[in-house]
């Protein structure tokens, strides 16, 4: 769960909403999807809360790129 990006978690959550609404899942599957959905939503909200804008500058050193903190 930790390695998942916010974007892909949001995508998964959207898919779960669609799958559950399609009504083709069994009760067992629905329950599992629901639990997964709640977990994803917690993860997404947490990600949104803890985020802080990072400002970097691209520096090229001998054909190698590096991102360095930038002050603006």
């Amino acid at each position: 769960m930790k390695k998942v990006s916010f974007e892909s978690a949001m995508k998964d959550l959207d898919e779960i909403v669609d799958e559950l609404e399609s009504g083709s899942l069994s009760l067992d599957e629905s329950l599992k999807k629901f639990e997964k959905g709640v977990e994803l939503s917690r993860f997404c909200k947490q990600k949104l809360d803890e985020s802080e804008l990072k400002i970097k500058q691209l520096v090229k050193i001998e054909d190698e790129f590096e991102l360095k903190d930038a002050e603006l």
Binding site: M10, D14, I16, V17, E21, K33, F34, V38, S41, K45
Partner: peptide
């Protein structure tokens, strides 16, 4: 939207 998703999946469940 995230909160709405949870409401949606809860109500479908």
């Amino acid at each position: 939207k995230i909160e709405q998703s949870v409401i949606d999946i809860r109500s479908t469940l």
